[in-house]
Computed example of a mutant assay.
Amino acid sequence: MATRLATVTTWFDSADDATARLRAAGYLTDDATALTAYLAGALEKPLLVEGPAGVGKTELAKAVARAAGAELVRLQCYEGLDEARALYEWNYKKQLLRIQASGGGDSWSETHDDIFTEEFLLTRPLLSAIRRDEPTVLLIDEVDKTDVEVEGLLLEVLSDFQVTIPELGTISAICRPFVVLTSNASRELSEAVKRRCLFLHLDYPDAEREKAIVTSQVPGLDDKVAAQLVDVVVRLRELELQKAPSIAESVDWARTLIALQIGDLDEATVARTLGVVLKHASDQQRAIKELQLPR
C-alpha cells in the first residue's frame, strides 16, 4: 500500500486564539495550557498531559475537538490492552467462512490475497484516527495504566503518524490527528514516548479560576455560595486524602446545592453533602475531624 502524504490542519492561529476558542468551547484555560495546545497543533506533535485525576486532562482533548469542529477518537487504556484492541485485528470468523465458501480449491497465495483485504480488517482507535481524512483529535486516555510493552505500539503512530500492517503495507495519515495522551503519573512513561511529545503538567486550579469554572458550568449559582464551595474544596485538597476532590466533583457539588436550593454553605450543609465530593469513608471521617464539621 502506497504511503500517503499528510495534509496540514491549522488547529489554532496563536496561543490567544487557543485561549479564546477553548473558552468558547467551555474550557477555561490558563496561559500555559493555551500555549501548549497551540504549539501541539502548529508543530504537529503529540501532547502528553500529566497530573492528578480530575484536573481536566481528558476534557482538554474534548475541548480541542469541539473548538476545531473535529471528530474525537478515544483509546481508553487499561491493564492488558493489546495490539488487537488498540490498532487493528483481522475478522478471523469471516475469513474462515470465506475459505469454507471457496471450497478449498484455490492456492494458498490466492486465498491469502482474498482474505487479507480491507473487507476483513477490523480497525481500532489508533488506526481509525490515522485513516480519517477529516480533522481528528486522538485521545489516548490514561496511558500510564497500560503495560510498558504497549508503549511500543504507540511509537510508530507518535513518530510518523503511520501504522504498518504486514499484509497490507504502511498506512500514513492523510490528515494528521491532534494527539493527546493523558497520564495520572501512576508509573513513569518511557523516555521514547516522552521524547516524541510536548509535555504539559496540569494541577488543580487556583481558587479564582476554579470559581470561574464552577460558575460557568453551573448557571444560577450564587456568587457567595460559589466562593464558599471553592474555599471548602481547597481546604479538602490540603488534607491527606485517598482521593482529593476533582474539578468535576466541585461542579457536581455546585449542582447539588442548586438542587437543594442552598443559599449558604454552612458547616451543617457541608457535612450533609460531603458524599458528593469525597467517595471514601475514611476521607469523609478525616474531613469531618479536620474541618470540625458536625457529625
Results as ranks from 00 to 15, higher is better:
Pro52Phe: 00
Tyr92Ser: 04
Asp31Lys: 01
Ala84Arg: 13
Ala37Phe: 06
Ala101Glu: 13
Ala53Phe: 03
Ala65Lys: 10
Ala65Gly: 10
Val55His: 02
Cys77Arg: 00
Glu71His: 15
Ala84Val: 00
Leu28Thr: 03
Asp113Tyr: 03
Lys94Tyr: 00
Leu47Met: 13
Ala53Lys: 06
Glu50Asp: 08
Gly103Ile: 05
Ala70Asp: 12
Val55Arg: 07
Cys77Gly: 03
Ala101Gln: 14
Glu89Leu: 12
Ile99Glu: 01
Glu118Arg: 14
Leu122Ser: 15
Val64Asp: 07
Ala32Ile: 02
Phe116Ala: 03
Gly80Phe: 04
Val64Gly: 05
Cys77Trp: 01
His112Ala: 15
Ile115Glu: 06
Ala101Phe: 03
Gln76His: 09
Tyr38Gly: 03
Ala37Thr: 15
Ala70Asn: 10
Ala61Gly: 15
Thr117Gln: 14
Ala34Asn: 04
Ile99Asn: 00
Arg74Tyr: 08
Asp106Pro: 05
Glu71Met: 09
Pro125Leu: 10
Leu81Ala: 09
Val55Lys: 03
Asp30Leu: 13
Val55Asn: 02
Leu39Tyr: 02
Glu89Lys: 11
Lys93Glu: 07
Leu47Trp: 13
Pro46Ala: 05
Asp114Asn: 02
Leu35Ile: 01
Val55Trp: 01
Tyr88Ala: 04
Glu89Met: 11
Glu119His: 10
Leu87Lys: 12
Arg124His: 09
Thr29Ile: 03
Trp90Thr: 15
